[in-house]
Design a protein around this nucleic acid. Structure first.
Length: 462
RNA sequence: GGCCAGGUAGCCAAGUGGCAAGGCAGCGGUCUGCAAAAUCGCUAUUCACCGGUUCAAAUCCGGUCCUGGCCUCCA
């Protein structure tokens, strides 16, 4: 049983999919006017862990991540650089996919782009117009929130509160200041579409309703995003979608908390604004960034500092070193050790149980670290045989399908390096430590770290 | 002003009525030719603060302080 915190009810709820063993999930993706920053990636890493854990738990996940390639900022960027909208956004779309690879973010099943789904949005808007949930004013089309009594159910703002809220927008043409735009009419804007509902471009919210329902159906399981999306974006998605279909739009809404940098909101003016590229440029390990972003529970604020990133780098390299140590034992003859299986079962259960409880990753990781500590004890006594090592690597690879912290493919050493290691062992026996140290430091420059144990020398890749 | 989170060791971070997980860093021991790695031990009598309930509170209740977010650009 997997339980998640649903923003709609503000309670933890058991996930029961619309269709047995299949989860349909929508995540708000990037607006491609610039490279994504680590705050954005906190959300994407959270969604990645959710996606991967659902698969680990045996669900078939169908996931959509949209790409917003038309909005005020992308338009402004394209105009500034005198490019077409597609030319301008392509650079950032490519950048986003590169960044996803750096952080080992699993690909969604679909990455629909707003500009390629204008007809679907137009259809949805027509439906809303026909049902009286939308109206046209001066070429633009607005959603009439007074026609949707559930408005506010996700953000838990009450209707009066929303209606009385101040807005400094110059939106006098709307019936009510809080109505939001579905379609922005265009007179002399650089980018527009000619459609049945007029010349213009879509409002921000409509793409997510149109694209999610196209790929996932009118009612689907999970919708995720950052908490700042709760209002107005997700609230508006619910209004548009449920007003159009008369059906419940999404069963589980999951939102992750913000990332702070040195205790403050990240902003360009404060100079604490990091893109993933900035951090990689400083030489940080992308896997450590992934680890740091995922190890604070997704509903708690995460305070990002370079100090904690360096700590994460150490943790990640210890994990990798452990994995390599196990791999090194894959060729070691010896008896099977029954206790190993008990440790695996216990860690496996502990990991699953923790993750099932609203993705409690810290508790889940602590199971893994305790497991490692137990196994290291056996290494100390030289009691890990090939059969044991095989089981351990199998378990670690399975868990790694969720956490993606370990690099599972270890390259074999070349023949000449293996003979160098043998040569060094011989030198050590002959007390020729000068030669032994030379070989060790040479191999170190080749990225090979030697560990002399009382049972012989083993190597790991740095 | 309304709504929502958070405050646990030097740092990061679980735990939400029954002896305070785990990681990083540090110190001491073992191992080692020296290292590295590993390992053992130590590092929070106390969970922002003040009251209350209870046999028992980090956890529940009331209040206070601090930090952050949302309230129509936002992950």
């Amino acid at each position: 049983m997997i339980v998640v915190f649903n923003t709609l009810s503000r309670k933890k709820e058991q996930i029961i999919p619309v269709q047995d063993k299949q989860i349909k999930m929508y995540t708000c993706g990037p607006t491609v006017y610039d490279y994504a920053h680590i705050g954005n990636f906190r959300a994407y890493v959270f969604e990645d862990i959710l996606h991967r854990f659902l698969e680990y738990a045996g669900y078939h996940v169908i996931r959509v991540m949209n790409i917003t390639d038309v909005d005020d900022k992308t338009i402004a960027g394209a105009v500034r650089e005198n490019l077409s909208l597609n030319q301008y956004t392509q650079k950032y779309i490519d950048g986003f996919f590169q960044d996803m690879e750096s952080l080992k973010l699993k690909k969604a099943t679909y990455f629909p782009r707003a500009t390629q789904h204008i007809p679907e949005m137009v259809e949805l808007i027509k439906k809303l117009l026909a049902k009286g949930h939308a109206y046209e004013k001066a070429g633009s089309i607005y959603f009439r929130i007074s026609s949707f009594p559930d408005y506010g159910k996700l953000s838990h703002y009450n209707f009066e509160q929303i209606l009385s809220s101040q807005t400094d927008e110059d939106e006098y043409e709307k019936e009510q200041a809080q109505d939001f735009v579905l379609w922005k009419g265009s007179k002399d804007e650089p980018f527009f579409w000619e459609t049945d509902i007029g010349k213009g471009r879509p409002g921000w919210h409509i793409e997510c309703s149109a694209m999610s329902m196209k790929y996932l159906g009118e009612t689907f399981d999970i919708h995720t995003g950052g908490i700042d999306n709760i209002f107005p974006h997700h609230e508006n998605e619910i209004a548009q979608s449920e007003a159009a279909t008369g059906k419940k739009f999404v069963n589980y809404w999951l939102h992750c908390a913000h990332l702070l940098v040195n205790g403050e909101k990240m902003s360009k003016s404060k100079g604490n604004f990091y893109t993933l590229r900035d951090l990689l440029g400083k030489g940080y390990n992308p896997i450590a960034i992934r680890y740091l972003l995922m190890t604070t529970h997704y509903r708690d604020p995460l305070n990002f500092t370079e100090k904690s990133l360096r700590q994460a780098e150490n943790t990640v390299s210890h994990l990798q070193a452990f994995y390599q140590r196990v791999c090194f034992a894959l060729k070691k003859p010896g008896m099977e050790n029954k206790e190993i299986e008990i440790f695996i079962d216990s860690a496996s259960k502990g990991f699953y149980d923790a993750m099932s409880d609203d993705l409690n990753i810290s508790a889940a990781m602590s199971e893994i670290f305790k497991f490692i500590s137990n196994i290291n004890d056996f290494f100390e006594k030289d009691m890990i045989s090939a059969m044991d090592a095989k089981k351990i690597t199998k378990f670690l690879k399975k868990v790694n399908e969720v956490i993606e912290i370990i690099e599972p493919d270890i390259e074999e050493l070349s023949e000449d390096k293996i003979s160098l290691i043998k040569e060094r062992e011989k030198a050590r026996k002959e007390k020729d430590f000068k030669k032994a140290d030379e070989i060790r430091s040479y191999l170190s420059t080749q990225g090979i770290l030697l560990e002399d144990t009382k049972y012989g020398t083993r190597w790991i890749r740095k």
